[in-house]
Design a protein around this nucleic acid. Structure first.
Lengths: 386, 386
DNA sequence: GAGCTTTACGAAGGAGACCATCATTAGTAG
DNA sequence: CTACTAATGATGGTCTCCTTCGTAAAGCTC
């Protein structure tokens, strides 16, 4: 594609490239000796040394104690200094606001949650997010100034500027400029993205979709939604509306979860947040009403999922969201429905990440952006250094 | 991200990168002076000179006569030597086998077609392709040895090895190893791909989808199919089955075109290949039967298209295939159906490329692969030179 | 038509980044 | 205590790029 040809450059650009390669090797594979780094990057030892020294000077890398017990002169070892900066990830959910604080590796250092309701006013919801982050910072013994990025995920469709455009779950949430609101609280860059997409990103980076290029992520829980991983990247769509197949009248996922929540197998008086667990437990015990509810739910889920699968032909479909622990109940039924229509059946897996996956995905997103910024690496290519 | 970090390299790699940048500038923007190339690539003049000299020596670039009438010393000008190699693109269709021969710019030099039927035996169909290419070569005064690549598109699902896996339109076509069959006839590398995807590629490169990152391509003609452009690349899917939404029972595009072909507005005795033209003409004249047929057709088309649109949220939907000249009739109706369901309405355009779009797309595919091979450029990134 | 301006060419010198090579060093093994 | 092993650190060479300079070939002005 000559139109988007990577611009060449001078020697410093080459150094930048090699720097990035060394940095990537160190970050991906933990503490490494110089020889190991050289092997991984294809550089010679002297060059590797020079690059590593530079990275040490910049504070990205530190030397660690050599590993004892080896034959020959012990090699100096280096590792990525993940503690050089920190990131806050926020999940602005309908019923819960979660936050995590992580280092630059994405390792979660602290994690908090605040209960809210759909009726919680916007200001109060933002304040809950602030408290959640503040709690994490306290737990991790950090200050706001230590944060390099705050990334947040929210239900609904968010534009590239971080303004909520459409949101079904939270009345009055549409129109809120999250970048601006969070920008008032934190002086670092703010990233806003749709929650299902961040969950998909988390699966792609550290969940069951690790290493998969093309996957469909289904958020099955109190809300039903979807997100796509294409070519290893989470697909946003031109207007940020990718994966909203659930709003298609044929699928109509808006009320699908009701089959699970309003099932007769749920004892009276059980709060809504626990209803699903009862339904799935009853289904495992063979309760006919629960099984019927699960069947109906899977039928509706399958309509949208099959449309996405036949559109994209992904390698994998991930079942995520609050219902994902019930993968043993849901996946066989979903698989049966899909096999009836799909030309090529993708693999099906249930997510194993916990409920903080959106916040973790937010952190992943922020890490990717920081990489791009500090190393001139755009996702999937080399961009001119500006 | 770090897992797929671009590997760095030595000085020769830098030269390779700059070579590629210079090459890209020359190919994209026609004959250029050294200063113009230097400006475009960001390189200094002496370096540019050296790189260009090298490219001239390798035969990729030639000097052309300086443009007269300018002030100052006339600058030497160089251009990409598109005639350095040639490519054959083949469209192995159900009713027609087409071939084009192009230079390395993708400029079509010759074009031929051979009529076939769904019942044409495989050997005869391959032989028709051979004759079509041979005809092009004669017209362009070339020999088989001048071909650097032969790329072909065919109906159905093709695996990465070039074997037809599933094909509805041509009985007995499934199982044919096209790479092997064409490899017996031509000694150059062979590329095989699904025809709708190649048509989409042609639209992306020189049609109405030029410069668009995310688009849905609908092949509307005697067969109905689709292909996707995501992130500027044609999306293949894990098993090569992306875009096969038409096989979903809800869409069932297999017989959709019959609405147009079997319309009562078509005079008796009109051969099937001309039926559609009559139906669309009658619809333009307000014939109720034709309008009803068009409505039914668009209804069915819209089911599949809306599913793809809501999955991907593309910027653009392209109507291609044999029915695309009837865009004036089809697009308003299709738009109306889509507007009923789509969250964000994409733009709709009818293709303006002719019937040879599949063969042209095949050429485009071959050009992209040649780039990757000769310059170590993988689509969207820098790969280690192996 | 001579001289000026403009633009491009080509050569020389310098800096940065990479590599290969070799003597040296700090451990373990016997 | 010696032999062996593997990493270290320093030296010199090569490649690619950049900057700077004088030179060359056109048009424009008087």
């Amino acid at each position: 594609m000559a139109s988007a040809a990577p611009t060449g450059g001078d020697l410093s650009r080459l150094r930048q490239l090699n720097s990035l390669a060394v940095f990537g090797a160190l970050r991906a594979d933990g503490p490494l000796t110089l020889t190991a780094v050289a092997e991984r990057t294809g550089l010679s030892r002297p060059s590797t040394k020079e690059v590593v020294d530079q990275l040490v000077e910049l504070g990205w890398v530190v030397e660690v104690a050599p590993s004892a017990g080896t034959i020959g002169r012990p090699a100096r070892r280096y590792r990525f200094r993940a503690e050089a900066g920190h990131i806050a990830g926020i999940d602005l959910g309908v019923h819960t606001v979660r936050a995590v604080v992580s280092d630059l590796d994405g390792t979660v250092l602290a994690e908090t949650r605040q209960a809210v309701t759909p009726a919680t006013p916007n200001d109060e919801r933002i304040a809950a997010a602030e408290r959640a982050v503040e709690g994490c910072l306290t737990m991790a013994d950090l200050a706001r100034e230590d944060l390099w990025t705050v990334a947040a995920g929210t239900t609904g469709i968010v534009d590239t500027a971080g303004v909520v455009r459409i949101c079904a779950g939270i009345p009055g949430w549409a129109g809120v400029d999250l970048t601006a609101r969070l920008g008032e609280l934190f002086s670092c860059p703010i990233e806003i993205e749709n929650d299902a997409r961040l969950a998909a990103l988390a699966e792609r980076e550290r969940g069951v979709a690790k290493g998969i290029r093309d996957a469909v992520f289904v958020h099955a829980g109190r809300r039903t939604g979807a997100a796509l991983v294409i070519g290893g990247e989470v697909h946003r769509g031109f207007g940020g509306a990718a994966g909203e197949i659930g709003l298609h009248p044929v699928a109509h996922w808006e009320r699908s979860a009701d089959h699970i929540h309003d099932c007769p197998a749920v004892p009276a008086g059980v709060p809504k947040r626990d209803a699903a667990r009862h339904t799935f437990a009853a289904a495992r015990d063979g309760d006919p009403a629960a099984l019927a509810a699960v069947d109906r739910y899977c039928d509706e889920l399958a309509v949208g999922v099959s449309a996405m699968v036949m559109t994209l032909d992904p390698e994998l479909v991930v079942l995520g969201g609050g219902f994902s622990p019930a993968g043993d109940v849901l996946l066989p039924r979903l698989r049966a429905r899909l096999e009836e229509v799909c030309l090529r059946m993708p693999e099906l897996r249930a997510s194993t990440l916990g409920e903080e996956c959106v916040a973790v995905g937010a952190v992943g997103r922020a890490v990717a952006r920081l990489d791009a910024k500090h190393f001139g690496l755009t996702p999937g290519g080399i961009a001119p250094a500006r």
